[in-house]
Design a protein around this nucleic acid. Structure first.
Lengths: 137, 137
DNA sequence: TTTTGGTATGTAATAACATAACATGTTTTG
DNA sequence: CAAAACATGTTATGTTATTACATACCAAAA
C-alpha cells in the first residue's frame, strides 16, 4: 500500500522541502477525503486539534503542498485534491464525477492523447493555458 | 468589422434569447476590455449609469451571457471574457498571456489537436473535465 | 554561545467573490 | 385583460482568499 503520506515524506526528504507536522496534517486531511475538499472544511477539521488555526494557516499549507506537487487545486470548484502520484510534475488532467465527486487524475497531459478513464462521460471541460504570448515572450 | 454586439443581437434573435439593455451593456463592457474582467469591476462600471446595480445584477447578466455562449468564465482567474465567435458552442481552450492579459480562444477542443497560437509559451495548464464516471453513469 | 538570517506559524482584520431569498416590475401569451 | 413567465431591484449574508504584522523556531556564522 503505497501510502500518500509516506510518498510525501520520501519526496520531501529528497528535495529538501520541509513537510512540517502542520503541512503533513493538512495533506493527510486532503488525502483522506478522496474527493475535492474546501479550504474552510480543512480549517474546521484542523481546528479540532489546533485552536489557533486561521484561514492563512490552511492556505499556506496548501500553497506549500501544491508547490511540492502533492496537491492539486481544482479551479472550477475552489477545492483541493491529493495528487496520487506525488512528484510526477504539476501538469495533470482531472476527471471529476459530478455525482460521486470522485476525481481521476491522468498524468502526462500530452495534448495529442486524451487518456479519458474508461466509461467517463464528459459534460463540460475547463481548458486554460497560462504563459506568454508571442508578443510578450 | 464583425462586431460582437451585432453578432450577439443576431444570435439572440435567432434563438429567442432576450438580450435586454442591461445584458447588452454587460456584454459591451466585457467585450471592450479585451482581457479578462472581474465581476465587481463590471459592477462599478455599470454603477456609473445605473445606481441600482448590485452584485446579483452583474452575476445574473453574466450567467445569461454564458448560457448564450457569448461569454466565457475564466475559472483560474475568477474573471470573464467575451467569446469572439458567438455561438460556436461552449467548449473552448483559452490561452491567457500572463504579461499582457490577452486571451486567445481556440474553438473545437478536439483532444487530439492542440491548436496553440503561434509563439505562445505555456507555463501552466488547467485541464478539468466534469461529467459522470463509469459507476455513476 | 550569542547573534543573525531564513523559514514557519500565529493573529486580526478585511478584501474579493458569489448567492439566497424575497419584492417588484415588465413581457409574452392564452 | 389576466395569468404566467421572465427580468430586475434590494437586502442581507455566505464563501473564499489575502494583507500585514507579530512571534516562534532552527540552523549556520561570528
Amino acid at each position: 500500500m503505497p501510502d500518500i503520506l509516506e510518498d510525501a515524506d520520501r519526496l520531501c526528504a529528497k528535495t529538501g522541502a520541509r513537510l512540517t507536522p502542520l503541512r503533513r496534517r493538512v495533506l493527510e486531511l486532503v488525502a483522506r477525503a478522496n474527493a475535492p475538499v474546501k479550504a474552510y472544511d480543512l480549517l474546521s477539521q484542523i481546528d479540532r486539534t489546533n485552536t489557533s488555526a486561521k484561514p492563512p494557516t490552511v492556505y499556506r499549507a496548501l500553497d506549500f503542498l501544491i508547490d511540492a506537487g502533492l496537491v492539486h487545486r481544482v479551479e472550477a470548484l475552489n477545492a483541493f485534491v491529493a495528487c496520487p502520484q506525488a512528484g510526477h510534475g504539476h501538469a495533470a488532467m482531472l476527471y471529476v464525477c459530478e455525482n460521486c465527486a470522485n476525481v481521476t487524475e491522468v498524468q502526462g497531459a500530452r495534448p495529442g492523447q486524451d487518456h479519458k478513464p474508461d466509461g467517463f462521460t464528459v459534460k463540460r471541460s475547463v481548458i486554460e493555458h497560462y504563459g506568454l504570448c508571442a508578443n510578450c515572450l
